[in-house]
Simulated assay, not measured.
Amino acid sequence: MSGRTPSRASALASASSGSANPTGKSGSMLPPCGRSTSALHALGLHGMAKAFADIEAGGDAASLGHAEWLALLLEREASLRRDKRLSKRLQYAKLRQQACVEDIDYRTPRGLDRSLLTMLVEGQWIDDHANLLICGPSGLAA
């Protein structure tokens, strides 16, 4: 096993035990919040680590209870993972144009119903397991 990279568990153990200390002394040179962020990074919880550092730096730490802290950290981690997944999917799709619903020009006479499009964008039809069929020419007619 000489060519293996260290596992997350061993990285976490070294981060929490202070074995990565460059001085060679026992104990850790990092403050407790630094050890926590190192451990979170070692576990692959980068969103939580960033949120932890942001909360500590912002001075909001004292006003939050433990449950609120945890909820905030979990929310940020989940959000980061969702964003990464979406980014990867968009990259994999290799879309030729960057388009979004907010950029639709309703002034052009195409017969678009703004309220219908708003309802479709909200996605309730997906939750209802309804089908959607869009008919007609694509793009602008010259």
Rank of each mutant, 00 (worst) to 15 (best):
G136D: 01
K84V: 09
A71N: 12
G136N: 00
A93K: 12
F52T: 11
R4G: 10
I134M: 02
A142E: 15
G65W: 01
H46T: 10
G59M: 09
R76K: 01
Q98A: 13
A61P: 06
L90K: 11
G34S: 01
S115R: 05
S7M: 05
S79V: 15
L117A: 13
Y106M: 10
S16V: 06
R89Y: 09
T118P: 14
S19C: 09
T108S: 00
G136W: 00
Q91K: 15
P109M: 04
G139Q: 13
I126R: 03
M1F: 12
R82C: 04
S7V: 02
Q98M: 14
Y106N: 06
C100H: 14
R107D: 11
Y92I: 14
A57W: 00
K50G: 03
D105T: 02
Y92Q: 01
P6C: 08
R89C: 15
W69S: 12
L12S: 06
P137N: 09
F52R: 02
G27L: 06
H66K: 12
K84T: 14
A13N: 02
P109N: 06
L86E: 06
M48Q: 02
R114S: 06
S138T: 06
P32I: 05
P137V: 11
R110T: 08
A51V: 05
I104W: 00
A71W: 08
L74S: 06
G65Q: 06
D105M: 07
A93S: 10
E77Y: 04
S10V: 07
A9R: 02
S14E: 08
K84L: 14
M119Y: 09
G58F: 03
S36Q: 15
Q124C: 09
G44A: 06
T37Q: 01
A11V: 05
S28P: 01
S2P: 10
V101S: 15
K25D: 04
I134Q: 07
R110L: 13
S87F: 11
L90S: 01
A51H: 06
G3E: 12
S79I: 10
A142C: 08
L117V: 13
H41I: 15
S138W: 12
G136I: 08
E68R: 01
G139N: 03
L40F: 05
D113C: 12
L30P: 03
L95H: 14
S10W: 09
M1A: 06
A9E: 04
A53N: 05
S14N: 10
R114F: 00
E68Q: 08
Q98D: 03
P31Q: 14
G24L: 02
E75H: 13
L30M: 11
T23D: 04
Y92K: 15
P32L: 13
S7F: 00
R81A: 13
A93E: 04
S26Y: 04
M29S: 07
K25R: 00
L86T: 15
I55A: 08
S14D: 03
A130N: 05
M29V: 15
E56A: 14
P22R: 04
L120Y: 08
M48Y: 05
N131I: 12
R114L: 13
Q124V: 12
T108H: 03
G59P: 03
S87M: 10
R89W: 09
A62Q: 07
T118G: 09
I104P: 03
L112W: 05
G65V: 11
G136M: 00
S7R: 04
L90A: 03
L43C: 15
L30F: 12
A99D: 11
E56G: 02
C100M: 10
A9V: 06
V121S: 07
R107E: 14
